Deep mutational scan, measured.
Amino acid sequence: VDYIVEYDYDAQHDDELTIRKGDIIKNVKKLEEEGWLEGELNGKRGMFPDNFVKEIK
């Protein structure tokens, strides 16, 4: 499942992704941690907030 970024987010920890509006995040999975998703961007896998992105259908 792929998501498109709607709002910029700067990573706060090493396991998070810095994302920018218009980025496409690939292979996204829901995490047990409420409010977070995990996906791949530019060869890096990491977490990001689910309210900054929208699923591409």
Rank of each mutant, 00 (worst) to 15 (best):
V1H: 13
D2N: 14
Y3Q: 02
Y3H: 03
I4K: 07
I4S: 11
I4D: 03
V5N: 01
E6R: 15
Y7E: 14
Y7K: 15
Y7P: 00
D8P: 11
D8F: 04
D8Q: 07
D8R: 07
Y9W: 10
Y9R: 15
D10H: 12
D10R: 14
D10A: 14
A11K: 10
A11I: 01
A11W: 02
A11Q: 13
Q12R: 10
D14R: 14
D14Q: 14
D14K: 13
D14M: 12
D15R: 14
D15G: 12
D15A: 13
E16R: 03
L17K: 00
T18K: 05
T18G: 03
T18V: 07
I19M: 15
I19R: 00
I19S: 01
I19T: 02
I19V: 04
R20P: 00
K21W: 11
K21A: 09
K21D: 03
G22E: 03
G22K: 04
D23V: 05
I25P: 02
I25F: 00
I25W: 00
I25G: 00
K26S: 10
N27A: 10
N27D: 11
K29E: 11
K29Q: 11
K29R: 12
K30F: 07
K30S: 09
L31K: 10
E32K: 12
E32H: 10
E33F: 13
E33M: 12
G35A: 04
W36E: 01
L37S: 12
L37E: 02
E38L: 06
E38F: 07
G39R: 00
G39S: 01
G39P: 00
E40L: 12
L41T: 06
G43R: 08
G43Y: 09
K44F: 12
K44T: 12
K44H: 08
R45E: 03
R45Y: 08
R45V: 09
M47R: 10
F48R: 00
F48Y: 02
F48L: 11
P49Y: 11
P49V: 02
D50P: 09
D50S: 15
D50G: 09
N51Q: 11
N51V: 11
N51M: 12
F52A: 09
F52M: 08
V53N: 03
V53D: 02
K54T: 14
K54L: 10
K54I: 06
E55F: 02
E55H: 04
E55N: 03
E55Y: 02
I56G: 03
K57W: 15
K57S: 15
K57F: 14
